[in-house]
C-alpha cells in the first residue's frame, strides 16, 4: 500500500474530513433533487390513474389509465371545447419553431453586419441595441395591444412570430461570440474567390457559428413555447383551433371543481412532455448555454 499523506490538525485526518463533508453535501443534493422531482413524479403518477384512485389515496406508483385520461380530454365537452392536445402542440410548434428560426437567422445577420462591416452608424446602432436590451415586454404591452388593434392583427400568428426577427439580447450574445471566435480573414478570402456578401454569410459564417446558433435556437424555442403572456394578449378570442399549449392548460386549471382530476393531470402532463424531452436530450447544450450567457463579458 502506498503511503497516505495526512494533514493531522487534531480533528481527524484530512481525508476523513473531506469524506464527511462530501457525504453531507451529497445528502443535501439528494434532498434538493427530490424537491425538484417529486412534484413532477406525482404529476406523472396521477396522470396515469383514474379519478377514483387519485382521490382515494396518495401514492407514488404509476397506474395504467393514461390513455383513458387523454381520451376523456378529447370526449368530455368540458375539456374538449378548448383542449385538443395535438392541435395545441402543433400550434405551439409552429409559433416556437418559427420564432426560433427567425430569431437565430436574423440575430446572426445583424451581428454579422455589426462585426464585419465598417459604416458610419455602426457605433450608434450597437449602443441602441444595448440600450433597449432591458426594456421589459410588460412595458410595451399596452402599446403593443393598441398596435394590434390599429393594424387589425388580433387573433393572428403574425404578431407572435414576426417580432422575433428583432431580439436585442441575442444579437448582443452573437456579436460577442463572433468577436471572440470568428476569423475575419476568411471573409476576405471568400471575396477574393468571388463570393458575394450574402453567400459568404450563408455558406461560410453560418456553418462556422453553428454552436452559438444551436444554443440560441434551443433557448428561443423553449422560451417561446412557454410564453403565455404574449400569446394571451394576441389570441384574445380564444378560438380552439388557435390556442397554444400553455393557453389550453391555463383554461384547464381554471375549471372550478373539475369532475375528473385524472384528466386534469393528464392535460398538464401532455403540456410538459415535449419540453422535458427536448431538455433531456439537449441538456448538455442548455446548461452550457446558461453558463455562457451568465457572464456577459
Amino acid at each position: 500500500m502506498s503511503k497516505r499523506i495526512t494533514y493531522d490538525d487534531g480533528k481527524g485526518g484530512y481525508q476523513t474530513q473531506v469524506l464527511i463533508k462530501s457525504a453531507a453535501i451529497y445528502f443535501a443534493l439528494i434532498l434538493l433533487t427530490l424537491i425538484c422531482l417529486v412534484p413532477l413524479w406525482i404529476l406523472v403518477v396521477n396522470a396515469t390513474k383514474a379519478h377514483a384512485d387519485i382521490i382515494s389515496k396518495v401514492s407514488l406508483i404509476p397506474g395504467t389509465h393514461l390513455f383513458k385520461n387523454i381520451k376523456t380530454l378529447r370526449t368530455n365537452t368540458l375539456y374538449s371545447k378548448f383542449f385538443n392536445p395535438l392541435r395545441g402542440m402543433l400550434n405551439s410548434l409552429i409559433i416556437a419553431g418559427g420564432c426560433s428560426a427567425l430569431t437565430v437567422f436574423f440575430s446572426g445577420l445583424t451581428a454579422y453586419g455589426l462585426v464585419v462591416y465598417d459604416f458610419k452608424l455602426k457605433g450608434p446602432a450597437f449602443v441602441f441595441i444595448l440600450a433597449v436590451m432591458m426594456v421589459p415586454t410588460q412595458v410595451t404591452a399596452v402599446g403593443f395591444m393598441n398596435l394590434l388593434i390599429q393594424m387589425n392583427l388580433l387573433d393572428s400568428y403574425i404578431p407572435l412570430i414576426v417580432p422575433s426577427i428583432a431580439a436585442p439580447a441575442i444579437v448582443f450574445f452573437m456579436r460577442q461570440y463572433m468577436l471572440s471566435s470568428f476569423p475575419l480573414d476568411i471573409i476576405e478570402a471568400a471575396r477574393i474567390d468571388g463570393s458575394n456578401e450574402f453567400r459568404t454569410f450563408l455558406t461560410i459564417s453560418i456553418p462556422m457559428m453553428k454552436p452559438a446558433f444551436a444554443v440560441q435556437a434551443i433557448f428561443a424555442f423553449i422560451q417561446k413555447w412557454n410564453d403565455y403572456y404574449t400569446q394571451s394578449i394576441v389570441l384574445v378570442s380564444g378560438k380552439k383551433e388557435q390556442l397554444t399549449m400553455p393557453m389550453m392548460v391555463q383554461k384547464v386549471i381554471s375549471i372550478d371543481r373539475s369532475p375528473d382530476s385524472g384528466a386534469n393531470y393528464a392535460a398538464i402532463f401532455l403540456s410538459i412532455v415535449p419540453v422535458v424531452v427536448i431538455y433531456i436530450i439537449l441538456s448538455k447544450f442548455i446548461i452550457g448555454g446558461v453558463a455562457a450567457g451568465g457572464v456577459k463579458e
Binding site: 443534493l29 413555447w225 398538464i268 403540456s271 410538459i272 422535458v276 431538455y279 442548455i286 446558461v290
Partner: peptide
C-alpha cells in the same frame, strides 16, 4: 444534479401553476 436542478426552469409556467394547484 445540475440537469435536474435546472429542469423546473424550462417547464411552462401554466403547467407549474396547475401542478402546484393540484
Amino acid at each position: 444534479f445540475k440537469v435536474v436542478m435546472y429542469m423546473p426552469n424550462i417547464i411552462t409556467a401554466a403547467s407549474v401553476a396547475g401542478l402546484y394547484l393540484s
